[in-house]
Every structure is written in structure tokens, then in C-alpha cells.
């Protein structure tokens, strides 16, 4: 197995708000290895972005309660000094967000923004060198005419081009881990295809590990090696990508797969849905957080609403699942039948 880049253990993050305590992330653990792409999927509010911000050390410790550990570049991000975290950011891990405009400074040329990001980790570089690096990065992310683009401002670019610029900034220090939080959600499918292709080819070139956060299972199928399915701040299932689609090991995963509109799956006609809505993160349901929406909960004699299932490995598939159904029942989810 390749080298570990990131190790998250029993991460919990909660925020105190006027309405009560928001339990955004409730004990998740995962590893990311060099050259690997981990997909994190889940509906909005399931804690994906909070997880990403925690890894980047972007959560203000005064406003949140955090526990567990996040090992990155030989440090625990949760306990490291701000100075140490700044040294990690950009070089160990860099991030790309959903809205490229929010990540760019509207008043600086894109060349200056790439050069500045480079300078943070190369303080002794010359202006000339930074200029060349910026040109090189713009070419790498596929901007036409880098020598012209370098002096332009973010508003002069389309959404897809802006996201390319953000990726250039993120990769300029050759980080070991790239975290992309819904990087294509705001883009057209045609542009999404361009950006995903770009990320994959840059991964080949730079050898970075990628965490790709998305609610789109199609995107996950295209790019991920491993997938973690989150619900209510917890891991429901963690699987190799092919296994997830062939043999989903959790009722929530199966529900998500059913709601996917793929082009080969049926013509007109009702889509499978998951009833109800995701829970409030302030008052999570007891037991399994998915039980109010789970079609199997009723036949489990109250177990699902009282006892929280822990993640366990299914020997046949190697997937991890947090569900009270037995192994055979979980294995039959992919076939759409459940027998007692």
C-alpha cells in the first residue's frame, strides 16, 4: 500500500448556536493514501464541508468543540499551533471550493494570486521565478493564452475558467493532498467534465491524493477509488467504488443509488426515492440516525431507534457498514431483496 497522507480518527465537531448545539461531525475515521482518490458523498448538511474545513485547520477553535485527531504532515491539526498549520496549508493539503469566486480576490490579477500562493512556501523566490511559475500553472490547468490571462482579473473569466485558476493556485506548491469540496456543482455538465478530466490528469502528473466531496454519485463513479458515504455527520458505509455500486452495504447508500438518474436506467417513470428529509443536526434521532427514513427500521423490533450501530467490516466485500441488518441482509441490498 502506498504511503499514508492523511489519517482522521474519531473526528467530532460541534458548534454552539442560539438554537442549540449543532453536531456537524459525529465520530468519523478514514485514511487517505498517496495517489488515491477518496470520494465523500452525502446530502447537504451531512457534515462533508465541516470535515474538509477541519482537515485544513480552518475551523475556529473558539467557535467549535472538536475532538479526535487529524494527522497530516506529521502533525495533529486539532492541536497544532496556527503557525504550524499555516506551514501545512498549501504544501501538505490545499483546497478547492464550490464557488471559485469566493476563493479568488477580485482586485488582484490571477497571475499575482498564483505568485502569492507560491511565495508563501518559497519566500526566497525571485519575482521572475514566480512569474514563470504562474505562467506554467496557467498552462497546466488549460487556460488558453496564459501570457494574456496572467494579467487579467477573475471577473474576466467564465465559471469553468475561474475554477481552473483556483486549481492552479491550489496546486502551485505541489500539495500531497487536494481537497475539492463540490468543485463542479456550480458548473454546467460540459464544463464539469472538463474540470474532472483536468483534476485526474493533474493527479497523474503531481501524484497528489484527492478527497473529492460531492453529492453526485455519477461524479464519484467517474473519479473515486474509495467512497465514504456520510449521513448526519457519521459514516454509513465505506467501500471501494466498484463495490459500492455493485453491492451497496447500507440502506442509505441503496436509497441514494436508487435516486440517481442514469441514462441507461429506465425511461420515463417514477424514480426510487428516500422518503422524508435529512434530520436536524441539532436534535439527531436516537439510535441509527437514518432510522426515521429507513424502510427496514420497522422490522427490527425497535433496535434501530434505540441503539446506534457501529461500523463493521463485511468479510465478503471488505466494505464497512454501520447498520443493524445482518451480513446476509446487507449483502442482498444490491439485489434489491431482503430476506429474514
Amino acid at each position: 500500500m502506498s504511503e499514508l497522507v492523511l489519517q482522521v480518527k474519531d473526528l467530532k465537531v460541534s458548534f454552539s448556536t442560539v438554537d442549540g448545539v449543532v453536531q456537524a461531525v459525529n465520530g468519523i475515521s478514514f485514511d487517505v493514501r498517496k495517489g488515491q482518490t477518496l470520494g465523500i458523498v452525502g446530502e447537504s448538511g451531512s457534515g462533508k464541508s465541516v470535515t474538509a474545513s477541519a482537515i485544513m485547520g480552518l475551523i475556529n477553535r473558539n467557535s467549535a468543540d472538536m475532538s479526535g485527531s487529524i494527522l497530516l504532515g506529521g502533525l495533529d491539526v486539532l492541536t497544532a499551533q496556527e503557525r504550524e498549520i499555516r506551514a501545512l496549508r498549501g504544501r501538505e493539503a490545499a483546497m478547492v471550493f464550490q464557488d471559485p469566486m469566493s476563493a479568488l480576490n477580485p482586485y488582484y490579477t490571477v497571475g499575482k494570486q498564483i505568485a502569492e500562493a507560491y511565495e508563501v512556501h518559497h519566500p526566497n523566490s525571485s519575482k521572475k521565478e514566480r512569474q514563470l511559475v504562474a505562467l506554467d500553472m496557467l498552462a497546466k490547468v488549460g487556460l488558453p493564452k496564459p501570457s494574456e490571462c496572467i494579467d487579467e482579473y477573475p471577473h474576466q473569466f467564465s465559471g469553468g475558467m475561474r475554477q481552473r485558476i483556483v486549481i492552479a493556485i491550489a496546486l502551485v506548491n505541489n500539495p500531497r493532498l487536494l481537497i475539492a469540496d463540490e468543485p463542479t456543482t456550480a458548473l454546467d455538465v460540459t464544463v464539469q467534465a472538463q474540470i474532472l478530466e483536468l483534476m485526474m490528469s493533474l493527479q497523474q502528473e503531481f501524484g497528489s491524493a484527492i478527497i473529492l466531496i460531492t453529492h453526485d454519485l455519477g461524479v464519484v463513479a467517474e473519479v473515486a477509488d474509495e467512497v465514504m458515504v456520510m449521513y448526519a455527520g457519521q459514516t454509513m458505509e465505506s467501500s471501494k467504488v466498484q463495490t459500492l455500486f455493485d453491492a451497496p452495504s447500507h440502506p442509505y447508500t441503496r436509497g441514494l443509488l436508487g435516486s440517481v438518474r442514469s441514462l441507461d436506467n429506465s425511461e420515463r417513470g417514477a424514480l426510487h426515492t428516500i422518503a422524508g428529509n435529512p434530520p436536524s443536526m441539532i436534535s439527531l434521532p436516537g439510535g441509527c440516525p437514518f432510522h426515521p427514513r429507513c424502510e427496514f427500521a420497522a422490522s427490527m423490533n425497535g433496535l434501530c431507534s434505540s441503539v446506534q450501530p457501529t461500523l463493521r467490516v463485511l468479510p465478503t466485500t471488505g466494505s464497512e457498514s454501520a447498520c443493524h441488518l445482518n451480513d446476509d441482509q446487507l449483502l442482498s441490498l444490491g439485489r434489491g431483496v431482503i430476506h429474514d
Binding site: P144, T190, A193, D216, G218, A221, E222, Q242, S262, N265
Partner: peptide, 22 residues
């Protein structure tokens, strides 16, 4: 062709027609 296929097996094989530019 730009729609991601929810099928990891197809991801490697299906030839995508990626439009250039905007």
C-alpha cells in the same frame, strides 16, 4: 456524453466527447 455515468466500470471505457472552451 458529459453526464457522469453512475457506473465505475464504464468510467474508464466510455469515450467522452469533451467540449473545449465556453
Amino acid at each position: 456524453s458529459a453526464i457522469p455515468l453512475a457506473d465505475p466500470r464504464a468510467a474508464g471505457t466510455h469515450k467522452r466527447m469533451v467540449l473545449t472552451g465556453d
